[in-house]
Structure formats: structure tokens, C-alpha cells
């Protein structure tokens, strides 16, 4: 423990050594200014939505509108359930759909991507290398760019207007497979797996009991990205039944009722923001560790 502290101090000292030559005060000041300007640009809209969600009706309609709230109220939040009662299906159904889909996609994606990454990372057969090459090319495309061609496949498979149309395409996210594979390459020592193989462990066992625990940062990262995307899903043209739609769709319907409801829209937005933020805060350090191996060679 003491030794570690000593080491840290030493590194900090060294850092200062070279930073003394290369860091000018003027540039430091410029950096802080730039970060402040862009930081405000990034954060102000989010703060504005939180603040607005606590505004009473007369402040929402005040002219000129003020940025901050003077008499905060929880009205916009408490009115949400009754507003949502006017929707065609109960609010709890939208919430269930969103939670169910998000959890199914997150868990499914981590397993599917983890297994695929294990093969891509360890098998150097020509066929497998070709698959990885295809994955790297496909990183370019996402659900939006593939929209219409995918739609034709959905209808041929008969999964339109079912939960499958949300879940199946999301499981094959190439970003997740790519990140997981890159992280496995650097963080799982080949010698360890060879030793396990020598000791008579099968490939499946090596994957579950050796590799997966070692790449925990990667699957936490994949969980974050998969959850974030799934939580924001708004079906376009693939879901018709109201009782299969998600929370963002319900929020859209509240938003359609105009400025008088803007407080409630912001309240709903704030509620929708909380889960991804919590997931991120929990997994932040793991995300950073995983992303450092995200590099790609052409």
C-alpha cells in the first residue's frame, strides 16, 4: 500500500517535470474558456428542461419567459398519470414495454456479442477473419441507414408488430461485437486460456468461467450502449398496435398537445433521462477502460 502511494507520488512529480516545459498559462486559460463555452452549450438545454419541468403554468406562459423558476411546483409531475390516462392504453403498459425491451436487448446483446467476440478474438481461420472484416465494414451502417431494406426483411419474417422487431435487430449491433473483441484481444492473456485448455477445460467453460469475468468492463460498456439505444427506441412503421409501443412514443403524444403542456413534456423527458444517466454513472470507469482498446486498423 505504502509502496503504491510512493509510486503515485513519483508519477505526479514526473508529470510536473515535463508539464513545466510544455504548459503555458495563456493556453491553460484558453482551454478553460473553450471548455466553459462548449460545456454551457452542452449542459444548458438539459438544465433548462429540468428547470422547466418545475415551472407552474403561469411561469410557463410568462412573457418574456424566464430561464429559472421562481415558484417551483411538482404539478407537472403529479399531473402526468392523469394526462397519460387519456392515451389509448394505460401508462403502465408503455412503461412495461420499454423496460421489457430494454432488459431483453441488453442481456441478449451482451451474451450474443460476447460469444461472437470470443470466436473472433481466438480463431484465426480465414472464414472468421472475413466475418470480422465484414463487422468492421458494417460499423458504418445502423438501423436508420438500413431502414427500408430491413423493413422488407421484417415483413418477410412476419415479425412486424411484435416484440421481435425491436429485439432481434438490436442484438446484432456490430459496435458491441467490435468493442468486445478488441477488449478481449488485449485483456485476456492467451497463456491463461492455454493453461486452462491443458487442464482439460472445454471452450465453453473457458468462455463462461474465465473470459467473461475478465472482460467485465467490456460487457458493462456494451450494456450501457445497448440499454441507452433500447430505452430511446421509437418504432417507425414497424409497430401498429398501441399496446406494443414504448415510453418515448407516449411522450410524443403528450408533446403533441402544445405549449400549455410543455411543463409535463419536460417532466416526462426528465423521467426518461434518469435511467441511462444512472447506468452510465455506475459503469463509467469500466466504459473508459473498454474504450481505450477501441482502436481500429484499416
Amino acid at each position: 500500500m505504502k509502496e503504491k502511494q510512493k509510486k503515485v507520488k513519483l508519477v505526479a512529480h514526473k508529470k510536473k517535470q515535463y508539464k513545466r516545459f510544455t504548459r503555458s498559462k495563456a493556453a491553460n486559460f484558453m482551454f478553460v474558456t473553450i471548455l466553459l463555452v462548449f460545456g454551457l452549450f452542452m449542459v444548458l438545454p438539459l438544465i433548462y428542461s429540468v428547470v422547466t419541468s418545475f415551472k407552474p403554468l403561469d411561469e410557463l406562459l410568462a412573457f418574456p419567459p424566464k430561464f429559472f423558476v421562481t415558484r417551483p411546483t411538482l404539478y407537472n409531475y403529479t399531473v402526468l398519470p392523469s394526462l397519460l390516462d387519456n392515451l389509448q392504453v394505460p401508462f403502465s403498459r408503455y412503461a412495461f414495454n420499454s423496460i421489457f425491451i430494454s432488459v431483453a436487448i441488453t442481456v441478449g446483446h451482451v451474451i450474443v456479442a460476447g460469444m461472437a467476440a470470443f470466436t473472433l478474438s481466438n480463431c484465426k481461420h480465414k472464414f472468421i477473419s472475413t466475418v470480422f472484416w465484414a463487422v468492421q465494414v458494417a460499423l458504418l451502417f445502423n438501423g436508420y441507414t438500413l431502414g427500408i431494406p430491413q423493413y422488407l426483411i421484417f415483413s418477410k419474417l412476419g415479425i412486424i408488430d411484435t416484440y421481435w422487431v425491436y429485439i432481434l435487430p438490436a442484438l446484432q449491433s456490430t459496435t458491441g461485437v467490435f468493442l468486445m473483441k478488441q477488449y478481449m484481444d488485449v485483456s485476456v492473456p492467451k497463456a491463461l486460456m492455454e493453461a486452462a485448455l491443458l487442464d482439460g477445460a472445454g471452450y465453453y467453460r473457458i468462455f463462461w468461467t474465465l473470459v467473461m469475468p475478465l472482460v467485465k468492463p467490456a460487457w458493462l460498456t456494451l450494456s450501457l450502449f445497448a440499454f441507452r439505444d433500447a430505452w430511446a427506441i421509437q418504432p417507425s412503421g414497424t409497430i401498429f398496435s398501441e399496446n406494443l409501443k414504448t415510453l418515448p412514443v407516449a411522450m410524443n403524444q403528450i408533446a403533441a398537445s402544445g405549449i400549455a403542456r410543455s411543463g409535463s413534456v419536460m417532466a416526462a423527458t426528465v423521467i426518461l433521462m434518469i435511467p441511462p444517466i444512472l447506468v452510465y454513472l455506475v459503469s463509467q470507469s469500466n466504459v473508459m477502460e473498454t474504450m481505450s482498446s477501441a482502436g481500429m486498423k484499416d
Binding site: 456479442a113 461472437a116 430491413q150 442484438l171 446484432q172
Partner: peptide, 17 residues
């Protein structure tokens, strides 16, 4: 182990393209 991903990848990315 590659199969589940490969199947979905072929059906939802390669075939659409």
C-alpha cells in the same frame, strides 16, 4: 458460439444490403 450473432448479422445487415 459465433452462430447466433452471425445468423442475426446475415439476416438483418448483410441480406438487407
Amino acid at each position: 458460439m459465433l452462430l447466433p450473432f452471425l445468423l442475426l448479422f446475415v439476416v438483418f445487415t448483410l441480406i438487407p444490403i
